[in-house]
Design a protein around this nucleic acid. Structure first.
Lengths: 220, 220
DNA sequence: TAAATATATTAGTATACTCTAATATTTTGT
DNA sequence: ACAAAATATTAGAGTATACTAATATATTTA
């Protein structure tokens, strides 16, 4: 059984390993806000436990076992977020810090019950996929809004980072998952976008925001 | 902010301090299944934090601050148990080990939401009182079934210990909170009782069980 | 390619929480 | 009241998780 701390390292590595399936000590260090030597020695431990592959001065990779255990933590996190929003009435910007703690609870029956009460959801309130009990995750083919072009019509599918500040920002602009967005204009010098959606027009989104919005092109 | 471990010591002391408002190192040690020297040094720490009063070779007592913080942990535990039973459909014997973990979560909004969704309950599924946000607890004037006499008619109000084994035992006998129990007979040699309730008659309860059942006399 | 910078590792230290063994004190039983 | 038993404390050690400082390797830049 992994400790909460170990679970956090596994989750970090899981979330940082992109398509390449690897991440560096430095990335994990910055992500968790824990100094590199600490990360280094923890990775050595996880490597001895058969959860991480770690050769000196090489990037970190999760083993299959590590991938599964990390995915299950993410699963608990996202199921919890979904439950908090759907069944308890929290806003999508309020649930992260609660789920961050509940994800470390060891009680399969508790998470299975949430899953059941929610009707076996596949995405969380931020549009991120919920890994299955087997650790498999449905790849999302979404693209960043910042990669779209003037005239594109897209649907907001997920947010890349679920920081409370970004989510509150979206709340004040009434920009929710599922919104159909039309790109009216792109400022070349700062890559900010003028977009329209619902009954709003000419809303300006900075490039930082556009990077975090994951969308799907819609035939127009 | 207290750690989960510290919270467990506070809770133990809170629950063990009876009317006298004190408990010994040994009692806490047995209750938590942690060796005495460990308890001793932790109590020294809590004493430095102003949560416990601890003079050498004297019993332990919670300060007002310690009492409040302990009560709030118990509050989180019992609110959680109530939520799990009432809103998620768990049986009363399944919720203890889950609540034991959730009680250490730091998220007032989460527990306030449970409280609200439950309609501000004052007792948990086992009949134990839920401390208020101010740490006050409604004293329960219940007596042990084992203190009653032949012919008494009582209502089952709470169970003194919520071990899964006792609760399952009660489940199989269909003995639930609120049951009206009549004491038919008491075996003098082992203090076991023959009781009737609902449509059951001559059910035998051992003295161990009778000690754990908290009841209120009903005028007959 | 050499120097500068970034990243990674090692070594040593600190705190939280646990233990066992040894000792001190209090309580109990005769 | 004294010996035995129970309880409490001190001392010393171990694991988990963090840190800083020093060093080693890798990458970038000029």
């Amino acid at each position: 059984m992994n400790s909460s701390v170990e679970e956090n390292y596994l989750k970090a590595l899981f979330m940082l390993s992109g398509t390449k399936g690897e991440a560096t000590v430095n990335e994990v260090s910055r992500f968790l806000d824990i100094k590199m030597p600490t990360v280094n020695s923890m990775m050595k431990r996880l490597s001895e436990k058969g959860l991480v592959i770690h050769e000196n001065y090489k990037p970190l990779r999760l083993t299959e076992k590590g991938k599964l255990e990390a995915a299950l933590v993410v699963r608990k996190h996202r199921l919890t977020e979904m439950y908090l929003v759907e069944k308890m009435g929290f806003g999508w910007e309020e649930v992260h810090h609660i789920a961050e703690q509940i994800e470390h609870i060891h009680a399969p029956d508790f998470f299975n019950k949430m899953d059941e009460l929610l009707g076996y959801p596949t995405v969380d309130p931020h549009g991120s996929p919920i890994p299955s009990k087997e650790g498999s995750i449905i790849a999302t083919p979404y693209i960043q809004l910042s990669d779209c072009l003037v005239g594109d019509r897209v649907e907001l599918m997920a947010v890349g980072q679920s920081s409370a500040s970004l989510l509150k920002y979206l709340n004040t602009r009434e920009l929710a998952l599922g919104a159909l967005i039309h790109i009216d204009e792109i400022e070349p010098f700062d890559r900010s976008m003028h977009v329209s959606y619902s009954d709003r027009t000419s809303v300006v989104l900075t490039s930082l925001v556009c990077d975090s919005l994951l969308v799907r092109r819609v035939e127009s």
